[in-house]
Simulated assay, not measured.
Amino acid sequence: MIDEQALLEALNSTPVVDGRPRDLWADDAALRRWARKHGGADGAPALDWLRTARGALQTATHGPVPEADLQRILTGAHRVPEAVASELRWRLCGPPERMLAVELVLAWYDVQERRPGRLRPCGNDECRLFLLDRSRANTARWCSMKTCGNRLKARRHQERARQEPGA
């Protein structure tokens, strides 16, 4: 099942490491492990759908939502009500190779609805990671204060020091 943490893992699977962009899902074995960990199919078509969903959701988090791409992923998916003891549960159904990608898209929309404006790209333009701001004030700017936050603050401090007279 895809929760907020799994959604962030997916969105953040294309980090910049030592100044170079990396794709942690380029390796089929790594993506298969991720898919199995989250209860999804791990065949080649399922991996392709996961990569497609990740790309569309990264685009959507940066700016305009690529509706056609997301609709293509969601096509054929539906929820079926099931009465279990005294509960009503909704089971997600659809093409098996697309189910985890569908769950990823649904998790993204759920976060957008429940936490509007809190899922966003890191404020460091050189970073390709995303953050889910859980702070009360909704003021988080960086994926990590330890890395991006400190780095940008140090850069700004150095720029100010250079611009001061007598420096």
Rank of each mutant, 00 (worst) to 15 (best):
A137E: 03
G166R: 02
R162I: 12
C127H: 02
R156L: 14
K146V: 03
L152T: 04
T147G: 14
E159K: 05
Q158V: 14
R156A: 15
C148V: 01
E164N: 11
R162P: 09
C148D: 04
L132G: 02
P165N: 08
N124T: 00
S144L: 02
P165W: 09
G149D: 06
Q163T: 15
D133E: 06
R162L: 10
C148T: 00
R160D: 14
R155I: 15
T139Q: 00
P165F: 12
R136T: 05
T139P: 00
R151V: 08
S144T: 00
W142P: 10
P165I: 14
N150W: 05
R155T: 15
R128G: 08
T139V: 09
L131Q: 01
K146I: 02
L152H: 05
L152N: 08
R162C: 09
E164H: 13
K153V: 09
N150Q: 11
R151A: 13
E159D: 10
D133V: 05
T139D: 00
A137W: 01
G149R: 02
R162F: 08
Q163D: 15
C148P: 14
F130C: 05
C127G: 06
C127L: 08
A140L: 11
H157P: 13
E126Q: 06
R151D: 10
N150L: 11
R160S: 15
E126L: 06
E159V: 12
N138G: 13
E164F: 10
F130A: 03
R156M: 13
S135R: 01
R155F: 15
N150K: 08
R155A: 15
A161D: 07
A140K: 07
E164K: 12
A137C: 09
R128Y: 07
D133Q: 02
E126F: 07
K153P: 11
M145P: 13
C127K: 02
L132P: 05
L131M: 03
A167E: 04
C143R: 03
A140Q: 09
